[in-house]
Every structure is written in structure tokens, then in C-alpha cells.
């Protein structure tokens, strides 16, 4: 059994790209904010590591931390700026750096995902990551049937967004 530091180092190494991309998609491709958010996820991971019981896999566990940290990040950011959620989302689009948008060929994908509602963004990114619906249900804490219905609807919405891009 590795000690806490070694385990954290391994988890960080293995899941950093996954967490960073989820943060990037959640924040509409804003790389600077995504880096802060990724850091926040791993700080929360370190803090929670001593309580890891092994009831879920590390992957599902880190997804849960990522999802909850993303949702809290938006809450904190808008609380500090005194903006309602919709307004904050608009701010995020307007402050998106042009150079970032032009140099990153995947920016339209992040932008399209960013047009979805917060929870829908996280759901579709887990699908794109190849998570089983059962695992997604476990991360969000909803029924499997509900996950299917939601994802079906999100796919349709995302398809429309991408067609209109």
C-alpha cells in the first residue's frame, strides 16, 4: 500500500489530463481559469484522500470531486462578482482570449459544450470520456434511466449547436 504522498502523486499524474480537459470544457475553453480549477480539484483530492474508503474506483471518485468542484467554482466566482449565473456565463464568453480561440483548433468544440447548461456540460463530457452510463449515474447521483433520457436530450442539443456554429 503506497503512502499518501506517493498515491497522490500517481493519481495526479494519471488523472491530470482528464481533469484539466473537463475543466476546460466546463469553462468554455478558458485555459487560464481551467488551470486554476484543475489545481482546485487536486487540492480537494489531497484533502479528501485520507477518507477514501475504496467504495468506488479512484476514477469515479476523482470525477465526483471534479464535478462538485466545477459546480462550486462557478458559485464562488459569481458570488465574488455579484452576478447571476447567466450573466457570469456571458462574461466568460466575452472575456475569452482571441489568441486562445484562434490558436486552438478544438476551441469550437469547447465553445459548443459551453453553450449547454452547467450539469449538461459535465454529463456530455463524461460521455465523451467514455464513461459508462452506470458510472455517470454514480457520479451525479441520479437514476440510470434519468441519465439515459438526459444524455439523449443533450446529444440532440449539442448536435444543433454544432450545426449552427
Amino acid at each position: 500500500m503506497p503512502n499518501k504522498e506517493t498515491l497522490f502523486e500517481n493519481l495526479h499524474k494519471e488523472y491530470h489530463p482528464m481533469v484539466h480537459q473537463l475543466c476546460l470544457g466546463f469553462l468554455k475553453g478558458d485555459n487560464s481559469l481551467a488551470q486554476d480549477l484543475t489545481q482546485e480539484v487536486f487540492i480537494n483530492t489531497w484533502a479528501a484522500l485520507k477518507n477514501f474508503k475504496g467504495a468506488a474506483s479512484y476514477k469515479t471518485w476523482i470525477y465526483r470531486i471534479t464535478v462538485n468542484t466545477c459546480l462550486k467554482f462557478i458559485r464562488d466566482a459569481k458570488k465574488n462578482q455579484h452576478l447571476p449565473l447567466d450573466e457570469w456565463n456571458k462574461t466568460l464568453v466575452n472575456t475569452e482570449p482571441k489568441s486562445n480561440s484562434e490558436s486552438n483548433p478544438y476551441q469550437p468544440l469547447y465553445r459548443a459544450i459551453g453553450q449547454l447548461k452547467e450539469v449538461d456540460r459535465l454529463l456530455i463530457m463524461m460521455v465523451l470520456d467514455g464513461l459508462e452510463y452506470g458510472e455517470i449515474a454514480e457520479v451525479i447521483g441520479i437514476q440510470l434511466g434519468n441519465v439515459r433520457v438526459k444524455i439523449h436530450r443533450i446529444k440532440k442539443t449539442l448536435k444543433n449547436i454544432l450545426q449552427n456554429e
Binding site: A48, R64, I65, N68, T69, K72, E138, I140
Partner: peptide, 10 residues
Amino acid sequence: KFTDAAVKSN
């Protein structure tokens, strides 16, 4: 808790 399912944490 950040480690709970999103619905429970929320």
C-alpha cells in the same frame, strides 16, 4: 463533501 455524488453534495 466533494466526494459525494453531485446531487447529495448540492
